[in-house]
Design a protein around this nucleic acid. Structure first.
Lengths: 335, 335
DNA sequence: ATGAAAGCGCTAACAG
DNA sequence: CTGTTAGCGCTTTCAT
């Protein structure tokens, strides 16, 4: 039940705590001789720094906070994995909260993060977040933040996302090329940019190819499985059934997939289906799903890299950027 | 750039910091009048406690540490989600590290957790962890810990897992009932208990039903997708091909699934396939996979509940338990 | 019912 | 090259 502190090492060697601290940090002022001695004793006593004490003193920890809607959503768990890998290599640990798509919980998560003096924050918004002013506190406290994937137009910090508009545009163009004429869209909520941009890509593709937009073919929901189920049920009940459905993301597409199968319809013969995100599961269903690769792991890594830069250089010395990654259309048998 | 502290509130009211601290914590000594005043000012100044300072003072934070092999594995991300939900309700936040199945990284993760003075730790071992003595530090520091899913026989703390032996036994019995005679097993590494117990369940089921065990039908690997691929390749190249394969978990089964499909074999007609964990993906492939439900989210919640109890009552006042959850056999078309 | 004071472990002026 | 000192925000014992 003994925990070695810097003072223990100092006492052992008849040095001061500050010298030991400096030696441990390879401060140039300290002689090689003492550095060696200090490190020797440190190793012998199995000393390792108390991150909490350091964080307290320095007013900032080596922890990166992450707020996502749902941890178990593949896109996010994969992004978190990318963040963790990068953070680990930079000597940071991650603290994760999930908003469960709930605005109030997102606000509390944010407080917890600030309260824990995270060095920086990585955020993907909940689908129910309309107002983003709670993030103002970060600017006030000079806490670096990078938003990824689920962003909002009123946000001022850096952002990392894929080119949602273009990804959707390409996908819908592909559907048109295949000869589909009545292409429906199960859209996301309009407060979150990715939802709006994917819908916009969908609309623009139709318009550019001379097709008319039928508003009854656009149903709006959230980003979850169940939203796909409900959306598909509505669409399939339409008097003139669509011949293709483009879903705002893969979880929604999978929800739709189940409904289509249940109703005994064949994909793509009776109705084509496409998603967005390229979850691993989409390659394995039968038929495999056409989708847009969103490079979740890379998005996580890029967002973390941007954040680390801000942490290192100071939030005031880095101007916010919006990093837009290219998507890749993955054509499979569902279209 | 102003952050209200307890001292600010104290100054504002002409009180001492200690009184304010007590008022904020609803200490019985403090009069209702001052409590009200303090809370009023606290709200006005948008005060909220500095968790780091609290943790520093109290020698323990309100953070629960989690170490898992891979965050993006559905079983783990789902368990983490369960942990986070429970932790959130109890006023804790979670800190997550992934070992990437690497023993050395697991050791460093552990240090980071201790260094961050987590209130308690939830651990699932990496597949390369043979020796678990690095966890001794937790006992020395009296840090509560609960191991879940991937455990090891030398571990002393509490554990939460499913009845792996029975789950495998039931599954293999089902295969025998179906008439399969040459049932192969792609097994996990033997250092981790779940691997050994699932294998044991497999062996016992065969023996109890009077079938002989053919060691050449047992191939050993890890817990990842690629292990399933390699395992299946070996098994399918055998002179006498097995008529069924039971895989140590769903990711491995999916790796095997791809190989079987690639080789043009039909499931289950040419060869049956079964997994373990009931990843959502396993219900959606064609044919859907027979598997064993492992209730990942619940395992996470139960482990977290056990941990919180230890944190609350003190690690010395709770005797370690091993919680074994019942599994549920999910029979689908792949068998 | 409230205050004074000490201290958790570490770092960083400032001083020598 | 090394030591002294102060203090980060909070809790808690001991006074009053």
């Amino acid at each position: 039940m003994f925990r070695a502190t810097i003072t223990d090492i100092a006492r052992e060697l008849g040095l001061s705590a500050s010298t030991v601290s400096r030696a441990l940090h390879d401060h140039p002022d300290i002689s090689e001789a003492t550095k060696t001695k200090v490190k020797e004793i440190a190793a012998r006593l199995d000393y390792f720094p108390d991150s909490i004490a350091q964080g307290f003193k320095k007013q900032r920890t080596s922890t990166i906070g992450i707020i996502v809607p749902e941890i178990q959503h593949h896109f996010f768990s994969s992004a978190i994995s990318g963040i963790e890998d990068l953070a680990y290599n930079a000597g940071f640990t991650i603290m994760v909260c999930q908003s469960n798509e709930d605005y109030e919980r997102e606000k509390l998560n944010l407080r917890a993060m600030v309260s824990n003096r995270v060095a920086g924050l990585l955020v993907s918004l909940s689908q129910s977040t309309m107002d983003v002013s709670h993030f103002d506190i970060l600017k006030k406290r000079k806490i670096p933040v990078v938003f990824f994937d689920r962003t909002h137009e009123d946000l001022t910090g850096s952002q990392v996302k894929v080119d949602d508009h273009n990804g959707a545009y390409q996908l819908v163009s592909h559907l048109i090329d295949r000869g589909y004429k009545h292409i429906a869209h199960i859209a996301g909520p309009s407060n979150i940019l990715i939802g709006r941009e994917r819908e916009c890509g969908y609309r623009d593709a139709l318009i550019d190819r001379g097709l008319t937009i039928d508003e009854s073919l656009i149903v709006r929901g959230g980003y979850r499985n169940s939203d796909g189920t409900h959306g598909a049920e509505k669409l399939l009940a339409l008097p003139k059934r669509p011949d293709a459905i483009f879903c705002v993301n893969d979880p929604v597409a999978l929800g739709a997939y189940l409904v289509i199968k249940q109703q005994g319809l064949r994909i793509p013969n009776d109705i084509a289906l496409a998603g967005f995100s390229n979850n691993p599961i989409s390659a394995l269903i039968e038929p495999p799903l056409t989708t847009v690769d969103q490079m979740s792991y890379d998005i996580g890594k890029s967002a973390a890299a941007l954040l680390l830069e801000q942490i290192e250089k100071g939030v005031d010395n880095v101007s916010p950027v919006i990093l837009v990654k290219k998507t890749k259309l993955i054509i499979r048998k569902s279209t």
